[in-house]
């Protein structure tokens, strides 16, 4: 790999662009596709460009056979993000776990006593109101939003913004009864049943979690399943294990 191309790739990644690195395994040539358009490197055939765009969209590295020979498509999408609403005990466990799993984590809580650096070392903290914070963070399809505060004044506005975004995972902590009440409030606010079905509530896989750390594991596991397998497949698997 030429150093100039490696530098261009690293710059694009640092700028949070969607980058695909193409390696032509027979000719040892290489190229970049940045945000869907040809970047550094030689001219690309339509076939190869289309394959790179598909790989970026699906966020999957792959080897493809083309008229130009085998091409390895390596995808570098912007980092996964997790927004936690409520700087509570479970957030203290979930934030570092999610950071290890590759998420850029932001904890939102307007209550200053909760969102402190000593409780959340190395984690980005915002003391804005959750709806304002969420609007500023602009969740995309690489973002998960989890409300943990148990306080409808904090959780509901965050969920409303999340439901209007492309966030791949939206979850709310709380018992089934609390969740039914939450859904009723959001229905009042004008959301349809189909929209509300995007909320995983109670948050997390049912693994019998008790402690804050265990609940964090169950949430991170569910988030991972939705990210990697999609919500539909997760639902069908849960159905199988329940029957």
């Amino acid at each position: 790999m030429r150093l100039a191309l490696l530098e261009a790739l690293n710059r694009a990644r640092a700028g949070k662009r969607e980058v695909c690195l193409l390696r032509f395994l027979d000719t040892h040539e290489e190229a970049l596709v940045v945000d869907g358009e040809p970047g550094c490197g030689g001219p690309l055939g339509e076939e190869v460009l289309a394959a790179a765009r598909a790989a970026l969209r699906e966020d999957r590295c792959r080897l493809v056979e083309t008229a130009q020979g085998p091409v390895f498509l390596q995808v570098f999408n912007p980092p996964l993000r997790l927004v936690l609403v409520g700087a509570v005990h479970i957030a203290q466990a979930l934030a570092p776990m999610a950071a290890l799993a590759g998420y850029a984590v932001t904890v939102v809580d307007p209550r200053r006593a909760f969102a402190t650096d000593s409780r959340f070392p190395d984690i980005a903290l915002l003391d804005d109101w959750p709806d304002e914070a969420l609007l500023a963070l602009a969740p995309d399809r690489r973002t998960a939003v989890v409300t943990l505060s148990h306080d409808p004044k904090l959780d509901d506005p965050a969920l409303e913004v999340a439901l209007r975004s492309d966030a791949f995972y939206i979850a709310a902590l709380g018992s089934r009864r609390t969740h039914q009440k939450r859904l009723a409030r959001l229905r009042e606010a004008g959301f349809t049943g189909a929209e509300l079905a995007r909320i995983h509530g109670p948050a997390g896989l049912d693994i019998g979690a008790v402690s804050p750390a265990e609940i964090a594991v169950s949430i991170l596991a569910e988030m991972t399943a939705v990210l990697r397998r999609g919500k539909a497949e997760l639902a069908s698997r849960e159905g199988e294990s329940a029957s």
Binding site: L3, L6, E7, N10, R13, R23, L25, C61, F72
Partner: peptide, 27 residues
């Protein structure tokens, strides 16, 4: 260390004048 960050390391090492190779799982 995350896979993507390895490329920052590769660039930094090369700039220091070290010889650097990258091995990538392609299939």
């Amino acid at each position: 260390i995350e896979d993507a960050r390895l490329l920052d390391v590769a660039e930094a090492w090369r700039r220091e004048g070290r010889r650097v190779a990258i091995a990538t799982v392609v299939s």
